[in-house]
Every structure is written in C-alpha cells, then in structure tokens.
Amino acid sequence: MPDDAKPAGVFSAPCACQEVSEEDRYAQLDDILRTYRNIPGALIPVLQITQTIFGYLPEKALRKIAAALNKPLSEVTGVVTFYSFFNTIPRGRHMIRVCLGTACYVRGGKQVLAALKEELGIDVGETTADRNFSLDVGRCFGACGLAPVIMIDDDVHQRVKVSQLPRLLEQYRDKQDTTSKT
C-alpha cells in the first residue's frame, strides 16, 4: 500500500476505553474505506485499522468492509477467523496475557491461568461482562528469568503467585475509573 494512502492518525486512533461514540467510529471507518476502496490487497490493512478503531471487529464493520472492497462477506470473515490477531469479540478495557512459554509453563503459568479464569469467570479469548478484562495467552514474552509472567496491558508482572491475583486485578479495576490508561 502506498504510504500516502495511509490516513494520518489512524494508528493512534482512540482506544476502547475513551468515550468515542459508535457513530464517530463508523465515520472513521467510512473515511478509511474511501481511501482504500480501489487499492489491491487492502483487506488485511483495512482489518488492522478497523480493529484499532473499535478494539475488535464488529460484524457490522465487516459487512461494510466487504461491501466497500467488493468482496464476499464469507471471504472477509475467512481472513478474520484465520489470523489469531483478529478478534470479533469486543475487548475489555484491560488485556491480560498469561505467558505459557516453556519457563512460565513449568513454573506455574498454567495454574495462574486457571486461577484467572476462575477469578474473572471467563475463558481464554473472552471478555468479562463489565468489559473490564479480556484474557489471552502468549508464548514467551522474553522474560523467562522472571517466570511465571503475565502482562496486563503494557505492564509486565513477574513471579506471579495465584494468591496475589485478586489484589493485582483490583489495581486495574480502580484505575479505569480515574484514568484512561490502556
């Protein structure tokens, strides 16, 4: 894709935690689609940008993308469901990633994951009903010496113990009321 085709500000689009109306997000998407409409190979970049705008890929957006790029919806969703990067379920304000790389795995990453599932009441890939947290797994964050490791948003938490988890989560729950940290 030519560089000048990339609309300014797209990648710094507001995250899901700020109060941007649905309408504004779709207006942004319409702008993107106008720019990319006739560019070959636009599907994946458009999906990436759309995910930045919405925090996930809502079906309504996928339908708009299919129509604008003149592709069948089945092809668009085929690409979306193929790549694990794409997400069709709304993401929470905070993304929790549990490392299940070798070191973390042998040092209790699995137990940490199980405890998080229990604590949040969701499975991997899901989001809590209050949209506070989403849960995902990762394969090595490059911090094996600190295993087991989890990441909440951009913060790395080392040598995590199951017993610490409720308090850890509480910190983030508090934060979302006062700041717009992602």
């Binding site: 069948p72 919806l73 089945s74 469901t81 193929f82």
Partner: peptide, 18 residues
C-alpha cells in the same frame, strides 16, 4: 462467494461467513 474456508487448522469449516 457464498463459501470460503472459515477458522483455521482442525477447526476449519468450509462454508458461509463465520
């Protein structure tokens, strides 16, 4: 374009969107 592979690996379904 009604049919297209959906999902991935063992989970792959050949069929309509999603």
């Amino acid at each position: 374009g009604a049919l297209f592979p959906q999902f991935r690996g063992y989970q792959t379904i050949i069929g309509p969107a999603l």
